[in-house]
Amino acid sequence: MSQIYVLLGSLAGIAMLVGLSAIFGRWSRPVIQSPADAAAFMKAEYFRFEPGEAVLAPDGGAAIVADVANESFGVIVTRGDRWVARVVTPQTVRQVKLTRPERLRIGFRDFTMPSAVIAFEDAQTAQRWAERLTRALDAAQPSADAHERLDPRTDTAPESAGPETAGPATADPETTGEPDHA
């Protein structure tokens, strides 16, 4: 019985400290200020990464960075007050999908980060980046299921056109089913 009290007391203590962290913890939502910031972060996280073109969410909460050396991409999303990065390779990615016309979802084979969702401002930009990611995955490892990585709905969307500099995107707080703080 006393162990139950210890457990309850511990939970109360945890709640108190988490509350104090929220109020006094000097934390804030991280913002990726520029493509150069995103590139530098990917390079620091992945030693082999050679950053190229990048697209940022307008609120700076997410980014996609091209890896020119490996013909791949890196994805950066926020977790709490920090960033987390993953590379997009056939080994790491299960699926690239447009869940809405402007919303790109990348499913990872990663128990700690099942997916990342980036909401672009317009469907055309989302479609263009979905195709770019899928092309890179297919080129890296052509396979029977490679074409299934792209959601069928994208087939009806307009072909990408215009310059490769993508339009602004919006970081989606539902990125991995774990809501970000306000």
């Binding site: 945890i14 988490v18 104090l20 929220a22 006094f24 000097r26 709490g80 920090r82």
Partner: peptide, 26 residues
């Protein structure tokens, strides 16, 4: 831990993120 949280609000050297803190304590 509580003292360090209070101290963090006055310093630029430490920060606590509530979900990170919750995970660590759990």
């Amino acid at each position: 831990v509580a003292a360090e949280i209070f101290w963090s609000s006055r310093s630029q050297r430490v920060s606590f993120e509530p979900r990170d803190t919750a995970t660590s304590l759990m």
